[in-house]
Nucleic acid binder design. Structure first.
Lengths: 204, 204
DNA sequence: CGCCTATCTTGACGATGGAAAGAGGCCAAA
DNA sequence: TTTGGCCTCTTTCCATCGTCAAGATAGGCG
């Protein structure tokens, strides 16, 4: 933030600087254009400096993914809490937060959900997307208090799949390629509404 | 196919050999482990040979993606045609074909739908996933003959999003991590059934 | 005040994608 | 059948990459 840090040999907070430059680089160049050396360059540090903060490039990417999941979960919570109405409305809210995060961080979002193809492993007991499922399961079970465990699980699957599929296809340009952002939002809301309605109806 | 091809200087059909070894390599090592030189090695040619058939590594990846979409579309058609019943049942069939392809080719499937993050561009007038949308739109419009164009479009969005989201999350291990393949299939079918029911209900 | 150690730099290695130039073999025209 | 042209493949080279090993620097603790 300071306009001219007169930094000498030591950086001060290289770890955070690498996370920041890495995140920007990821969005700019895509995962396959991501380079540890370029991250270092942008942090104005030698190419080997990152090694003292991240064991490998994958370790830095894993950190980006980890923080992405934390942010995503927070965004969903915030949006659901902002609503505070019927459970169904809050369920839609979760989806709005989810999609907004994806739209704002397309490359990171795609990386978070292509860990398998990209061979990125979080630490063993790592949360990953557990927070997301927990949030959804909480609201779905609120709607389906009387339903069987199986129906509830299947509606959690269904709710997650709908919102995840939609934003994923949008980010790929498969849905709404030439739509305005306004129109796209309305299509997303329509999908979320249909999803919530289906969950509610499962309560009989 | 011949057990010992005594191939001399010329390979015979290097292009196809590269596509084949590339596809295997992609599934083995993931997109970030994919290497043009390793493809060449597996086809038993020098590392520069591929250049005469693919302008760049991305060009080979684009070809894999292109063929993936063709296969995926064919798998969906075949499964829907095998059913031949109610439109709703055929809609589920499309989803079954879609998910089966994804499960059989996880890395390729993820690449096909992470083109943006991976900066892979198909040729300008290229089909991509258009065939998929067309297939779904056909059946959805059969179900919703009397609905407005907007409702139909939104149900196409919804149908695609549901099936795409589910298989994507399964491939990531986010859904059904420790489920049997049998149990997973049943969860997938449940999602497809809920999706189809929602589409049918949109017909009023 | 002086050392200690975390932090950062320099330099090197093997591997990669790509370009350039030459060798090899197929085929069609004479 | 011979010959010339051209497509295929190889060899060599370059810049860049991730990672490792050593050395330089400096902030902080004794």
């Amino acid at each position: 933030m300071s306009p001219t840090k007169p930094r000498g040999y030591h950086h001060g907070d290289l770890r955070e600087a690498l996370v920041a430059s890495g995140r920007k680089l990821l969005e700019e160049k895509g995962i396959r254009g991501f380079t540890l050396r370029e991250c270092a360059r942008r942090a104005e540090v030698s190419h080997a400096a990152p090694a003292h903060h991240f064991a490998s490039m994958d370790d830095l990417l894993a950190e980006l993914v980890r923080r992405g999941f934390a942010e995503l979960t927070a965004a969903m919570s915030a949006e659901a809490e902002r609503i505070k109405g019927e459970p169904a409305a809050r369920l839609v809210g979760l989806g709005v937060g989810y999609m907004a995060f994806g739209a704002a961080n397309p490359a990171l979002f795609q990386l978070m959900f292509s860990r398998e193809a990209n061979r990125i492993e979080l630490d063993q007991g790592e949360a990953g997307a557990d927070g997301i499922r927990r949030l959804q399961a909480g609201i779905v079970e609120e709607i389906l208090v009387d339903a069987s465990a199986e129906v509830r699980q299947r509606m959690v699957d269904f709710a997650w799949a709908s919102m995840h599929g939609f934003i994923t296809l949008v980010l790929e340009g498969e849905i709404g390629g030439r739509d305005s952002s306004r129109g796209l939002k309305s299509r997303g809301l329509a999908v979320l509404a249909a999803m919530a309605e289906t969950v509610v109806r499962a309560a009989r």
